[in-house]
Simulated scan of single mutants.
Amino acid sequence: MKKILFGFLFVLSFALLAACSGGNEEAQPADNDSEKKDKGVVNLYTSRHYEADDEIYAAFTKETGIKVNVVKGEENELIERLSREGAATEADLFMTSDAGRLHWAKDKNLLQRADSKTLAANIPENLRDKDNQWFGLTKRARVIVYSKDRVKPSELSTYEDLTDAKWKGKVLVRPSENVYNQSLLASFITLNGEDKAKEWAKGIVGNMARDPQGGDRDQAKAIVAGEGDVAIMNTYYVGVMANSEDPEEVKVAEKVGVFFPNQETDGTHINVSGAGLTKHAKNKENAIKLMEFLSAEESQGKFAEANFEYPVNPNVEPSELLKSWGDFKAQELNLSELGENNAAAVKLLNEVGWK
């Protein structure tokens, strides 16, 4: 009887041990499969509205398995939304144009530091925030656009020359509320001080062909319409018009030229579109991976070809159209200073009556 009882207990113990071991072996592969299928998400708030961007996000998902959820809106609305949502926000990344706007987000305590060796290697130091709270991903130059019929390139030289009496009633530019103009003036404050920056702004106001109005493309259209001879514009918009589905915009682009000012002095003003890691990001690692992907050579090439923006990655060539305009010397300053000097720039623009 004892032998039978012992044998029964032995068999029961072995069966229980086997059952426990079998359960563990089945559970482990299920966890691994789950990790392979679901790499998580990254939630992006962006003011950029380009098909090329969506294609790059899709390529990122295909390569990493990380889904990109995109919320698009106007930059000021998105900044306000981030402020309102606070710690409850789903946003992991904030992306917009102009270092000034990126600085606003930082100044409102909406971003956090993101340290990445890949971003440091792909993006020059002057094109990213001093505290690594935002990173430039594409570049644009703010240049002088001129009428090919009425202006010779040899007549052009510097931003400062546009205040000369020979350009009286001939200069076209956007309103002072536009952040591109604010950042341009902020760069002059950094390079030359507030007094000279104010003097320049006052001179531009004195030479305006009309009250400031419209966007950059409207300035080019006004040149062709004969309202003025020269305009201050971003290169990006000339590229967009040259490749527009609207034949009238293509005609406008054909009738204007691009001139890079200040090649013998401080260089041409540049700005960026960029992204920053939000303060309350729930998917921090995925967000940094997306920024790294956007700064890599393949993505930079797509930005350059499809959107007519200059790549920030020094290993990537500009598009053929941008190359046709020639190389240029850019201002040498950290773009963080555009945001830091924004309030002073706005003050000067108001003081000189730049509407």
Rank of each mutant, 00 (worst) to 15 (best):
E35I: 00
K36D: 05
K37W: 01
D38T: 03
D38V: 02
K39D: 06
K39P: 02
K39R: 10
G40H: 14
G40D: 12
G40S: 13
G40N: 12
G40K: 15
V41F: 15
V41A: 15
V42L: 09
V42Y: 14
N43P: 01
N43L: 00
N43Y: 07
L44P: 00
L44A: 02
L44K: 06
Y45L: 04
Y45Q: 07
Y45V: 06
Y45E: 05
T46G: 05
T46E: 02
T46N: 03
T46L: 02
S47I: 10
S47H: 02
R48H: 06
R48K: 09
R48L: 14
H49W: 00
H49N: 09
H49G: 09
Y50E: 15
Y50F: 14
Y50Q: 15
E51P: 05
A52L: 10
A52D: 14
A52S: 11
A52R: 00
A52T: 11
D53I: 04
D53W: 01
D53F: 03
D53C: 04
D54F: 02
D54W: 01
E55K: 14
E55N: 13
E55A: 14
E55D: 12
I56Q: 10
Y57G: 03
Y57S: 04
Y57A: 05
Y57M: 02
Y57N: 08
Y57I: 03
A58C: 01
A58I: 00
A58V: 01
A58M: 07
A58Y: 01
A59F: 00
A59D: 12
A59Q: 07
F60E: 02
F60A: 10
F60H: 10
T61G: 03
T61F: 03
T61H: 05
K62Q: 12
E63W: 01
E63G: 07
E63T: 12
T64D: 07
T64F: 13
T64G: 10
T64V: 07
T64M: 12
G65E: 08
G65V: 07
G65M: 12
I66T: 00
I66H: 06
I66Y: 11
I66R: 07
K67M: 04
K67L: 09
K67W: 10
V68N: 15
V68L: 13
V68Y: 07
V68K: 14
V68T: 14
